[in-house]
Each structure stands twice: as structure tokens, then as C-alpha cells.
Computed example of a mutant assay.
Amino acid sequence: MNRRIGVVATLVFSALAFTGGAILYSGTAEGEPTKKVVAGPVDSLIRPHSPIIGPKNAPVTIVEFFDPSCEACRAFYPTVKGIVAKYPKDVRLVMRYLPLHPGSAEAIVILEAARVQGKLEPVTAALLEAQPDWHDGKMDGAWAAAEKAGLNVAKARAMPTADAMAWMEQDIADARAVGVRGTPTFFVNGEMLVQPSPEQVEAKVQSVVAAMGQ
């Protein structure tokens, strides 16, 4: 366990170094979000390992660079979850991990264990709800919340973490490649939304869905 936490800490420091101190998006900017079209291969946004919530072949894709310990990610979560529920055939959410806080990478390990156990969505919701209890890196609260949401903690703690570590490293590298500077950062069908509010994310998805139906 201690060796794993050491690796986790190294990943966190790597993420912080890449962001230059992590300029975190608060989601409170007024007006229309700035638009940025990402140049480069699509697999910089979507990798085979990326968790997907919603239909895998949905025509509209939200990619979220996400940190379970990020307060803004917690604030955006009900909106993002609501968008996927509102468009059950048209929208999918692709989660990319960007650990920027104490405990973030271990929380991501928990989420990956939950995915293996078929509990990703309830455990994600539980970790975000309980975030104030473990945001400072005291991870007992995160494990307790995950267990209440149905995670088999004994199996989760016994899981190898090499894949999760490699996937986080890839997500950090991809975040750098596409110009992500903090969490949450959203892309809708490849277009970055810079410092949007939850309402602006929802409006953007609604407009894309409507345009595809014309």
C-alpha cells in the first residue's frame, strides 16, 4: 500500500508540474465561452482506456478532464450527469483523469476499481458527495464513501494499480498536448469550452444535438 501511494504522489507532482501550479477553472465566467478547436489526432481526446458513460456510439461526445478532488468538478457533476440523462441516445461522456490535488490519484484508483466491479457511476457520485471529507488527502473518507456506494473495498485494495497509473500518465500527457490547464475542462465534439459555466456546457450540448437533428 505504501509503495502504491508513493507512485500516486509522484503522479500528482507530475501533474502539478505540467500545469505550472494548476490554473483551475471555476466555471463562473460570464458571457459565452471562448471556443478553441483542437488541432491534432482525435486519440489525444479519447483513448481506449477512457471510461465512457452513455452509449458508446453516441453522435455527441463530451470529453471531461476530471479530478475527483476538484471542487469545480464536484459543482459541475449534477449538470453533466443531467445532460447524459436528458439525451440517453445522443450524448456520451468520456472521462479523462487529471490528478491535481492531494489524494486525487488514489481516488482515481478507487474509480478504476469501481469500473472493474461495474460500480463506476454510483462510486463517482459518492466520492464527489463526500469530497469535503477527504479533499485534504485523508483517504479513509473516500474509501468509506465508495464502500457505501457498493464497492468491494477488499477486492479494490488488492487490485494491481499498474494500469491505472499508466492511464493517468497518458491522460496527463494528452491534457498537455491539447492545451488543458486545469479541471474541469470540457470538449464537445472536439471543441474546447474555456471557462464555461454549467449552464453554458448544457447550452452547447443542446445546440450540437439540435444541429445534428436538422
Results as ranks from 00 to 15, higher is better:
Asp140Ala: 14
Val205Trp: 07
Ala22Tyr: 07
Gly27Val: 08
Glu112Asn: 09
Ala29Cys: 04
Ser44Glu: 13
Ala126Glu: 03
Thr161Asn: 12
Asp67Trp: 06
Ala211Cys: 05
Phe18Gln: 05
Ser50Glu: 06
Pro99Cys: 09
Phe66Asp: 04
Ser50Trp: 06
Gln206Cys: 00
Glu202Ala: 15
Met212Ile: 11
Glu169Ala: 15
Pro33Tyr: 02
Thr124Cys: 01
Arg4Ile: 13
Ile108Ala: 05
Trp167Pro: 00
Gly40Gln: 08
Ala29Gln: 07
Lys86Gly: 04
Met192Tyr: 00
Gly150Trp: 12
Ala142Gly: 13
Met159His: 11
Ser14Tyr: 01
Asp174Pro: 01
Glu106Trp: 08
Pro88Glu: 12
Ala58His: 12
His135Cys: 02
Glu30Phe: 04
Val42Tyr: 07
Gly54Asn: 11
Thr161Val: 15
Val194Pro: 00
Ile110Cys: 04
Gly141Glu: 02
Val84Gly: 01
Ser26Gln: 11
Ala22Phe: 09
Leu151Asn: 01
Leu127Met: 08
Gly179Pro: 06
Ala22Leu: 09
Ile5Met: 11
Gly182Phe: 11
Pro102Asp: 10
Val60Gly: 05
Gln195Asn: 15
Gly27Leu: 08
Glu202Lys: 15
Pro122Lys: 01
Thr34Asn: 01
Arg47Met: 12
Thr161Glu: 12
Glu32Ile: 05
Leu100Phe: 05
Leu193Met: 11
Gly54Glu: 10
Ile62Arg: 02
Phe13His: 14
Leu128Trp: 01
Ala149Met: 03
Val209Met: 01
Ile46Ala: 00
Val205Phe: 11
Asp140Met: 02
Ala210Gly: 03
Leu193Asp: 04
Ala105Pro: 04
Lys119Phe: 07
Glu202Cys: 06
Val37Trp: 07
Gly6Thr: 13
Ala130Ser: 13
Lys119Ile: 07
Ala175Gly: 15
Ala15Asp: 12
Val188Tyr: 06
Glu129Ile: 04
Leu45Lys: 06
Asn189Ile: 09
Asp140Lys: 03
Gly103His: 03
Ala125Asn: 12
Gln170Val: 06
Thr34Val: 12
Gly141Ser: 02
Val208Lys: 00
Val116Phe: 03
Pro132Asp: 00
Ile23Tyr: 03
Ala9Val: 13
Gly27Thr: 09
Val123Cys: 02
Gly40Leu: 05
Val178Arg: 01
Gln206Lys: 15
Val116Cys: 01
Thr185Ala: 13
Met165Phe: 15
Asp174Ser: 07
Lys35Ile: 15
Glu106His: 09
Gly179Arg: 05
Ala203Leu: 13
Leu111Asp: 00
Met1Ser: 14
Ser50Gly: 08
Ala130Ile: 10
Gly141Asn: 03
Val178Ser: 00
Leu127Cys: 07
Arg4Pro: 00
